[in-house]
Design a protein around this nucleic acid. Sequence first.
DNA 1: GACTATACGGAGACCGTCTCCGGTTGGTCA
DNA 2: TGACCAACCGGAGACGGTCTCCGTATAGTC
Lengths: 181, 181
Amino acid sequence: MRADARRNYEALLAAARDLFQEQGPDAPLDEVAKRAGVGAGTLYRHFPTRNDLVAAVYVADIDALCDAAEKLAAEDPDAALGGYMDLHVGFTLRNAGIKKAIKEMLADGDTRPGLTLCKTRMTEIAGETLAHAQDAGAAREDVDTVTFLRMLHGIALACEENPEMAPAMLEVMKAGLLRGA
Amino acid sequence: MRADARRNYEALLAAARDLFQEQGPDAPLDEVAKRAGVGAGTLYRHFPTRNDLVAAVYVADIDALCDAAEKLAAEDPDAALGGYMDLHVGFTLRNAGIKKAIKEMLADGDTRPGLTLCKTRMTEIAGETLAHAQDAGAAREDVDTVTFLRMLHGIALACEENPEMAPAMLEVMKAGLLRGA
DNA sequence: GACTATACGGAGACCGTCTCCGGTTGGTCA
DNA sequence: TGACCAACCGGAGACGGTCTCCGTATAGTC
């Protein structure tokens, strides 16, 4: 890919991320192009459909979440769990609209390999982060990855209308899950 | 309300019901007007927003469901339960798209008295139909109205992608719930 | 039959989507 | 370093859908 194409692609992702978080995944695509500083033709050549753009934003954000989680784990693998929980719920709350759009996309059979891959990566990193903490005695051992992720998802769902309640709920979950802090 | 206004109102409801069932609740409103044989201005005077129309269709359909249920009950109150189950699930399957739109409307705080009223009426009729059957010994007595409606809803959800599976699931539920048939 | 308040309707302004094609330029090569 | 060209850009315009405006029609009353 040419340098100008790569630059515009990233600019479009960033603009779309911002606009989708502000106005939801149905925000006007011409506005996305405008914010990215490119023409509408450029947007449609990179992302032929709205779903292509929504999925690309989501995948990029999941990858960023995983990168941040890996960085946390590299710094202190035994104590990264609490930070991971904050990252995960914060991410889910910021992307509630996009996530809903992704869900509808999948329900319509409009799947793409990137979505499956990034979800797998996230599950693996969550599992590794949990396992590290459990092995180090920093977290109770009777909670598996699926339960852990379900609880985080539940908190994000419960806080959809009131995101400011999330920290308190996370605190409770940490109190129940983490040890020695 | 003048006769021509009443006639156009009903025509719009019927056209919207058909189009929303065919194409979903986002079908073009000009097409609704066209099918109803009225001008777009007429549609917007009766229903200033899409949500107004979607809600009106939903309320009218719930009322029709309740009317049909009451008619069933009037004919044979002790044996109306099975028929009610068929009516209820059939209605829910036909209106999955509209129901989803109603749910999002309520989540956004865009409520209207008619929606609450018709849901209450439906719950009451379902409760009465169930109670009649139970009193007559035609249905097991350890199932309350909430459970009964939840199961019907569960069947409708499970059959969203495959409506042809509904009769078999209803048959199972009837076998478990009804007695003496 | 006259009258009038109520209702109608559809053209047009506006918004968003998305394609087309002339123009631009990043990258390669001599 | 300049020539070349395939890849990329971009924005005007066609199109679809929303929704308002206002001249016209008519239902209902007297």
